[in-house]
């Protein structure tokens, strides 16, 4: 039941799928995700492809535009596309642009738009999915359509594990 409302639930709104979310943009987003996601997250590119691919077309276009700004900056300062830089340099690029310290705004300046459409979009996708929330011992996070199936259940072992990690 949950699957029909899952990550791909925006797809019905889209009239076409060969849109702004090209392989290149997905690769660029995954390169950002490798910086802003916890290291325990695996299968990042596949996750990003599924998540971002299911977003509405208008959102995909905004994301692609923000990714272009990020690449422009990376090329100017490091002579390479963002995704072709080592992870440490990618982190530096984002911080040099002040994306880590700026507010998040869909209509703001370049760092604010990158924060909104790239960094926070990726974090929203992760932490409203069980893949992200399980890192915190939460089986069904707010924003994910699985709460009805889980709300009567005792927290799983994964939850205890996460809590144990917190205690350490």
């Amino acid at each position: 039941m949950a699957g029909q409302f899952g990550l791909s639930s925006f797809e019905g709104l889209n009239e076409r799928h060969d849109d702004a979310m090209t392989d290149t943009v997905v690769r660029d987003l995954a390169a950002v995700a490798e910086v802003v996601y916890p290291s325990a997250v695996s299968g990042i590119e596949e996750f990003v492809r599924t998540y971002a691919g299911g977003l509405p077309d208008t959102r995909k276009q905004k994301i692609a535009s923000a990714v272009t700004e990020l690449n422009d900056y990376a090329c100017r300062t490091h002579g390479n596309r963002f995704a072709d830089l080592p992870v440490g340099d990618r982190d530096s690029v984002l911080r040099a642009m002040a994306v880590d310290r700026t507010g998040s705004s869909p209509d703001g300046n370049i760092p604010e738009r990158i924060r909104y459409y790239v960094v926070n979009q990726l974090l929203y996708g992760l932490y409203t999915s069980p893949m992200g929330s399980r890192l915190l011992g939460i089986e069904n996070p707010v924003g994910h359509p699985g709460g009805f199936e889980s709300y009567q259940k005792e927290p799983s072992q994964a939850a205890f594990t996460a809590e144990d990690q917190t205690d350490e």
Binding site: V35, V36, Y37, P38, S39, A40, R95, D100, R101, T102, G103, S104, R115, V119, L123, L135, L136, G137, I138, P155, A159, A162, E163, Q165, T166
Partner: peptide
């Protein structure tokens, strides 16, 4: 509190684990 925090990745996860106690 208009400015966001500046952590992500594992740093943010450590903060989240402190601040999202599932108890």
């Amino acid at each position: 509190d208009v400015l966001a925090g500046d952590s992500w990745g594992d740093d943010a996860l450590a903060t989240l684990r402190e601040r999202v106690p599932n108890r």
